[in-house]
Amino acid sequence: MSIIAIIINVLVLIGASFVLIAALGVFRFPDFYTRIHAATKAGAFGGALCALAAGLHFLSASGFVQAILIIFFFYITTPVAGHLLGRAAYLGKVSLYSKNRMP
C-alpha cells in the first residue's frame, strides 16, 4: 500500500464515522433544533471527506473537478438548507426541549 492509499483509507473511515455520528445525533437528540445541528454539520462533513477520498482515488483532472463540485454542492448548500428548515420550524413554533435545566 502506498501513502496515498493509506490516506484514502483514513479519509473513508473518518467520513463514514462522521456520517454515523450525524445519524446517531438525529436518532438520539431530544429536540428538533439539536437534531438539525447534528445532521447539517456532521453529515455534510462526512460526505465531503468521502468526496475528497474519491477524488484522491481517481488521480485525474475529471475526478478532481467532480470531487470539488460535490464538495461545493454538498458542503456549502447543506447548511443553507438547514438554515431554511430552522427558520420554518421557528415560524411554526416547533417546541423546544422542556426538561433542560439551566445552571
Partner: peptide
C-alpha cells in the same frame, strides 16, 4: 413533526451520497 422527517430525509441523501 414534519420538520424532523425532512431533516431525516436530508441526512438519508447525505448517506446515499457517501
Amino acid at each position: 413533526n414534519t420538520v424532523d422527517r425532512i431533516v431525516a430525509l436530508d441526512l438519508i441523501a447525505g448517506v446515499i451520497l457517501a
